[in-house]
Design a protein around this nucleic acid. Sequence first.
DNA 1: ATGAAAGCGCTAACAG
DNA 2: CTGTTAGCGCTTTCAT
Lengths: 353, 353
Amino acid sequence: MHADDNPLLFRTPPTILDVALEAGVSKSTVSNVVRDATGVSEATRRRVRAAIERLGYRPNVIARQLVKRRTEILGVVVGDLFNPFFAEMAKMIERHAAARGYTAMFCNTEGDSQREIEGVESLLEHRVAGIVFLAFSGESRAMREAVEQRVPVIFVACSGDAGDVVSVDDVQGGTLATEHLIAAGHKRIAYLSVPELEERSDLMRLQGYEDALRAGGLGPPLRISWSPPADQAVVDGEARKLVDVLTGPERVTGVFASNDFAGIYLQEFADRYHLRVPADLSIVGFDDIAMSGLARIALTTVAQPREQLARLGIETLVARIEGKLTGPPQTRLIGVELVKRRSTARLIEPARP
Amino acid sequence: MHADDNPLLFRTPPTILDVALEAGVSKSTVSNVVRDATGVSEATRRRVRAAIERLGYRPNVIARQLVKRRTEILGVVVGDLFNPFFAEMAKMIERHAAARGYTAMFCNTEGDSQREIEGVESLLEHRVAGIVFLAFSGESRAMREAVEQRVPVIFVACSGDAGDVVSVDDVQGGTLATEHLIAAGHKRIAYLSVPELEERSDLMRLQGYEDALRAGGLGPPLRISWSPPADQAVVDGEARKLVDVLTGPERVTGVFASNDFAGIYLQEFADRYHLRVPADLSIVGFDDIAMSGLARIALTTVAQPREQLARLGIETLVARIEGKLTGPPQTRLIGVELVKRRSTARLIEPARP
DNA sequence: ATGAAAGCGCTAACAG
DNA sequence: CTGTTAGCGCTTTCAT
């Protein structure tokens, strides 16, 4: 009947033609059955189904993609799966994509823009139907081409101007976090960022921090860049020992960390140096990853509604892909909430002379 | 020259034919240039390269896959990205795959065997070159067909008999963990597992636990199944309040948790009930995820060499794919080490009458 | 060194 | 209701 007499061993996967031969019909009929197209008699349908079953036929998505000139693969560009925020987002993105019939192809950029470009390049070669950026380090040639070639792009929990954006209001979040510290009586409040966070979100959270500082009559802003668990950090462009920033009379008493990952590692750093959190140092994070909610971590943080971001992100991207959404890129900003936990407390000022 | 006069807007991606026309050569020549094949004069090569650049041509991987009848996509079946162990493994697997020219396609099964089957099915339809299981819930039809159709399969940090295995010695790990508790004077030691862990690893760690218990003259084994953060747990098949197991004169003083995730949530549970870890309860985990190393968590645990697992796993799988490794499935078990931290301590026995 | 031609497995008109 | 046919964009002999 078909090429291989031993259908169970060492066979090359059966094709639609094998099924057609086996069922005694034409390729098209098999195709119609497989695609659940109308206009196939119930009898034929059954016969074809039986043949498919017998042969263990599985449609070759690649051939289908080639002729339809589109895939149902979504590219997902992730900052760093090591950071639970990305891992949790990645999981939700994958789930929503799968629910809508799309498969996810991941690229972990590890914050490296070269890897990001290569990743996008590879996604584009695979002709993904759309790209989800969970982190985006900046415009590049690959990006521009992606847009030119009309691959819909969405920025989820980050931002870029090549496509739709579904994100939180980073400025508002930064303000919320900083206001919380100000309200607790802190005067010297720093902004801490780690290299893993992509630049735009970083800048906007910094912006919110600066706004709040100014509004509170405090200042000047103090910006710390730190790669945990290093001893050194860059403070306002100058290399200093991090511990020096957190001790002494002029010490920083409140830190708004650009994300929970940074906040938790700062807390770890404080523990190591016997600085008490929150007695000596109050810390606010951003994201509200699961870990931050543990009693032992108890990080006060700005919560990102991850589930909502993922859902809206996929919804929007799929609408673009399927042509149900047209027009210029849309930005949808979701409000954030501060979750108060035990990493922040009212500042106990030493008595002044 | 080619179909679209405005190459920057709304164009369908240029094909190899567009490039050929643009460069004034044949498709084959372009193909030869793209694939860096020998036998193309330097002059032609340059002309073709220029045309590619001008048009922004990017080879269509799908067409290539169709004709070569193989992809360079690796399917990765992940248990649950929410668990940092999987997230960290996923990241490393992706990195090693990318380093060898393979792209990763992920399926998050969330411990659900139905989702696992659908995921594998989808991977198979996409004609992935191989499948990496980071979690495996059991044999299924899809699995059997995967093997029949000769898609190489590898089980990393888990096990199955349809392909090669690169994993740790779960029994040894379970023994190590339990022996540590025994050596610290604990008499009533329980084994705790959460539903997310796949069955085979679970069973083997349980086995190691039972072995150690027996060797230490202790017993009978006590097995707790718990879904954090529930109050109830199933203890030796019987539903009980978890807190009751951990309090009272006959209380369990040492727990070997089947993974860090479970261990950390048990610690959280203990904190909530004001049980002191390790004074009232010693906990040993398994995996050594980054979180366990934080001073505030400080979970004693059996470390899985994740980097090594990922590297060996991809190495082996790629060797199978490329035909450099043949013969029956191989199992490679890697030794584990106990990392002692502050979640375990010597048992202070109350004075006996 | 280059080109022509035959598919890879499938879908989608269009005929019958 | 079913079959025929013409590609999708690429690789790969085989000629030239």
